[in-house]
Amino acid sequence: MKPLTVSLVQADAVLGAVARNLDAHLAQVGAAAAAGAGLVVFPELSLTGYVLRDLTPEVALRLDAEPIRVLREASRDIDIVFGFIEECDDHHMRNSAAYLSGGEIVHVHRKVYLPTYSMFEEGRYWGPGDTVAAFDTRFGRIGILTCEDVWHVSMSYLLFADRADIILVPSASPARGITVDETAVGDGGSPSDALLLSGSSRTWEGLLRHQSASFNVYTVYVNRVGVEDGTTFAGGSRVVGPNGRNLLEFGLDAEVGTLALDPELLLRRRTAVPMLRDERLDVTLGNLERIARSRFDD
């Protein structure tokens, strides 16, 4: 990878109000560019809000829609990752995140794992994506996973195998877990353990640090804040270095932070712990095929 200064926009969204959210995006993009960032990352569904339910078709955008053209224009100065409901060519709606650069759409990640359990009902309204792929940018190889995707370790494994240096994780994760058992900070490794965070944010911290440490990648996690239909989004956005340590961590409030990601750290980590070099794709593939066969046979 090359040196990258990334801006994390931990922000609220107005539910269903694409035009208002687009204005907020443009303001944040301008501020991030002025702060010297090369990439600005927004949360999951940043252009629409999250608890859309039957508003989904009303806010869905095709890739050639005007709001996306406006954001593409804004990406001439700074790369942008934002979230939206995509009306795909098959006319089904997907929870998508796009990477824009130089006025073009470089990559669209369609959320693969749509949680449809407990409080979540994504699979009712949106269709799943089926591709996870790293892509080349002017900063190096990047992959995007949206929120729940991270809970399936196969997703980050695939990006690792696809030689991602940086995994971006736009998210809209609600705050849950209020007992001291759940909110207790674990083994440190955090620049700001005193931050007020929900139990669910502590679980997320564990997942993201594990992802970075296992796969020797930078992880940039950008979560929503604000309240929709009684649910508070948990914030807790963070940057984790390729050694699994927190480099930046936000609390529950709206916040924008900019951090320089140093390729040197990636080099040092991969030298010390050459997981990618030693990874045996043939072993993974062979065993996955065996397991898939045995599961079909059952």
Binding site: I178, T179, V180, D181, T183, L196, T232, L252
Partner: peptide, 13 residues
Amino acid sequence: RASTIDAALVERL
């Protein structure tokens, strides 16, 4: 501990 709330967090939420 399983029922003891983090009261500052709950107040904030």
